[in-house]
Design a protein around this nucleic acid. Structure first.
Length: 496
RNA sequence: GGCGCCGUGGCCGAGCGGCUAGGCAGGGGCCUGCAAAGCCCCCUACUCCGGUUCGAAUCCGGACGGCGCCUCCA
C-alpha cells in the first residue's frame, strides 16, 4: 500500500510514490541558528523524523536535506550587536541544535548545507532568473517580479491581487521595488552598510542573498530541480514557500517539490509559542528539570502533525508513564525470551512452541493496523493505539503462559520483533533504553545488600522489617518488584 | 478585513454517516505477606441550535468559543 499524505499543494490527501523508484528525496526547512531552538521547533523536526523513518520503514531509501540558515536579519543583528563575526554567533547555536537533535533521538539527515557556504549557487540562480526575465535590478538589489510569473501563489491558490490590498505589504521603505508585492532575491545597495558582517560579491555589487533563495538553491543542488517532498512549519507556507516555489519554478520551468507537507504549531499551555513571548521551553531546560528525552519525544510525536499540539508539563508526565508502559513490556519480552528470570522454574524439557501460533497470527493484524494508520497521512495516534493493543494483549498472553518457559519464550520471540519494528518508526523505546539510568557501583552494592537483608526478613516473615528496607530503597529512588525469580530493581526518573 | 484550522469522557488524544481507538488519572477485582508490574471489569463522551438521513460526534446551515497565517516565526 502506498501512503497518502495531505499535500498543501492542492490542499488534498494524495497517494505518495517517489519520482525515482526506491528513493525519496526530501527537503526540510531547517533552523535559523541565531538562538537556542525551542520545543516548538522540535515539534516539527520530530514529526519530520517520523516521516523519514516511516518512509524508510516502507522500504525507500531517503535522501534528506536540511538547511542551516546562518545568514538572515537575526543572525546579522546579533553579530553586529556583539561585534562578532557571523560564524562566532552561529557556530555555537548550531552545535547546541545538533546536540538537542541527538538528545531526542532524531536520525541523521544526509545533507545539512549552510546558507553561507552556498552563496555562489544562489547567485547563479538569480542570474538564471534574470536571464529568464523574472528578475530586475534596483539600486544594487535584485527583485523577483511576481506578475511576470503566472504560477505565482499556486501553492495555496493565492490570488496575487489580494496581496495588493494587504496593509503589511506597504511600508517596506528599505527597498525600492517596482511593485510592493515583489520579493527580494539579492539584497545590495545601501543595505550593505548595516550588514557588513555578511557581504558577498555579486554581479550586482556587494550584498547578501534574500531569505528564500537558499532553500531553492540548496534543494536543487542536492536533490535536483524536481524532488519528492518539501517539509516545514505552517508559518513558512507564506511567504517563504510560496516565493521559494515561484523562484525555483520560474528558473527551471519545471515543478519544484511534488509534495508540500506542513506541521502545525505547538502551543504551550494553550497559547502560541514564540521566542518573542518568552513562553518557551528548550530541550536542555526540560532535561534539567528531570524530564526524559523519550517523554519529550513521545509527547511531540503523539498528536497529528496538522493539528496544533498543546504542550504542558502535565502532558509530559503522562507521556513519561505511557513510555514506561512500552518500556516495561519490551523489558518483559527480553527477559522472557532469554528464559529468565520469569518463568524460569519450568523444566527445559518441553521445547514445543505450544501457544505461540496465536501470537504469530495476531502479530500480522497489529502490523496491518500500524501500517494502515501511518499510511493514512501519518496517523500516529492510531499507530500508537495499535502498539498499545500489542502491549496489552502481549502481556495477557504472557500471563497465561507464565507457567511454561518455553511457551513464554515462543510468544516473546513472536512479539518482540513486531514491537521493535514499530519502534523503528517511533524511535521512543530505543531512546528510552539509552537513558536507562545506571547506578554507580556503590549504590548498586548497597542495593544488593538491602535486597539480601530484605529477603532474609521476608524469609523470617518479618514483613515490617522487610517493608522498612523497601522504604529505604524507595527513598533513594529505587523501586523494587518481586518476581518469581527473585526481586528486581530499577531507578526511577527524577522529574518529581 | 482576507485565508485556514479546531471545539470529543476528569485530562490528553484518534475517529469523520451505523460497528463504543488508545494513553494517563479514578473505582472494583485477580495475583502478591503487603507492594510493584501485569491482567480483567467499571467510569460509554462528542460546545449549542436548526436541517439532511431509517440512522450524525461524523454531512449541511447558523450561533458561541479557541487558535493560526496574511513579507524573514518550525
Amino acid at each position: 500500500m502506498s501512503p497518502r499524505f495531505y499535500n498543501t499543494l492542492g490542499r488534498k490527501v494524495e497517494e505518495f510514490a517517489p519520482l525515482e523508484q526506491g528513493t525519496v528525496r526530501m527537503y526540510t526547512c531547517g533552523p535559523t541558528v541565531y538562538d537556542q531552538a525551542h520545543i516548538g521547533n522540535f515539534r516539527s523536526f520530530v514529526w519530520e523524523d517520523l516521516l523519514r523513518r516511516y518512509l524508510e520503514w516502507k522500504g525507500w531509501r531517503v535522501i534528506q536535506v536540511m538547511n542551516i540558515t546562518d545568514v538572515d536579519d537575526r543572525t546579522i543583528r546579533t553579530a553586529v550587536e556583539r561585534g562578532e563575526s557571523l560564524e562566532q554567533v552561529t557556530a555555537p547555536v548550531e552545535a547546541a541544535f545538533f546536540e538537542d537533535w541527538r538528545t531526542l533521538g532524531l536520525e541523521e539527515v544526509e545533507h545539512k548545507p549552510r546558507a553561507t557556504e552556498h552563496v555562489a549557487r544562489m547567485i547563479e540562480l538569480v542570474e538564471r532568473l534574470e536571464s529568464e526575465g523574472y528578475a530586475y535590478v534596483r539600486n544594487g538589489s535584485v527583485y523577483f517580479a511576481i506578475d511576470r510569473f503566472p504560477g505565482y501563489g499556486r501553492l495555496i491558490d493565492l490570488d496575487p491581487e489580494s496581496l495588493r490590498a494587504g496593509s503589511r505589504v506597504e511600508g517596506d521603505e528599505e527597498y525600492s521595488k517596482d511593485d510592493p508585492r515583489d520579493f527580494v532575491l539579492w539584497k545590495g545597495g545601501e543595505r550593505i552598510s548595516e550588514s557588513d558582517v555578511a557581504i558577498w560579491d555579486s554581479p550586482w555589487g556587494p550584498g547578501r542573498p534574500g531569505w528564500h533563495l537558499e532553500c531553492s538553491a540548496m534543494a536543487m543542488q542536492y536533490l535536483g530541480e524536481t524532488f519528492d517532498i518539501h517539509t516545514g512549519g505552517v508559518d513558512n507556507i507564506f511567504p517563504h514557500h510560496v516565493n521559494e516555489m515561484a523562484q525555483s519554478e520560474a528558473a527551471t520551468g519545471k515543478p519544484f517539490a511534488r509534495f508540500w507537507l506542513h506541521a502545525a504549531h505547538l502551543l504551550v499551555d494553550g497559547a502560541k509559542m514564540s521566542k518573542s513571548l518568552g513562553n518557551f521551553h528548550t530541550i536542555p531546560s526540560l532535561v534539567a528539570q528531570g524530564y526524559r528525552p523519550s517523554s519529550i519525544r513521545f509527547l511531540l510525536l503523539s498528536g497529528h502533525h496538522r493539528q496544533q499540539l498543546n504542550f504542558t508539563l502535565e502532558g509530559l508526565d503522562r507521556a513519561s508513564r505511557a513510555v514506561d508502559r512500552l518500556y516495561e513490556f519490551d523489558r518483559r519480552l527480553r527477559e522472557v525470551e532469554a528464559g529468565s528470570p520469569i518463568g524460569q522454574s519450568e523444566g527445559a524439557g518441553d521445547s514445543g512452541d505450544t501457544g505461540t501460533a496465536g501470537a504469530g497470527s495476531v502479530a500480522g493484524s497489529w502490523r496491518e493496523s500500524f501500517e494502515a494508520a501511518l499510511d493514512d497521512d501519518l496517523n500516529v495516534a492510531d499507530a500508537l493505539a495499535a502498539t498499545f493493543e500489542l502491549v496489552r494483549e502481549g502481556n495477557s498472553m504472557l500471563d497465561v503462559a507464565a507457567d511454561s518457559a518455553a511457551e513464554s519464550a515462543g510468544i516473546a520471540r513472536e512479539l518482540r520483533p513486531v514491537l521493535a519494528e514499530f519502534d523503528r518508526v517511533f524511535g521512543v523505546l530505543a531512546l528510552r533504553a539509552t537513558e536507562e539510568k545506571t547506578a554507580d557501583l556503590d549504590l548498586a552494592s548497597w542495593v544488593e545488600g538491602q535486597l539480601l537483608a530484605r529477603a532474609d526478613a521476608r524469609k523470617q516473615r518479618d514483613f515490617a522489617l522487610a517493608d522498612r528496607f523497601r522504604d529505604e530503597l524507595l527513598e533513594r529512588g529505587v523501586t523494587i518488584e518481586d518476581t518469581p525469580a527473585g526481586p528486581r530493581w530499577r531507578l526511577a526518573d527524577d522529574s518529581d
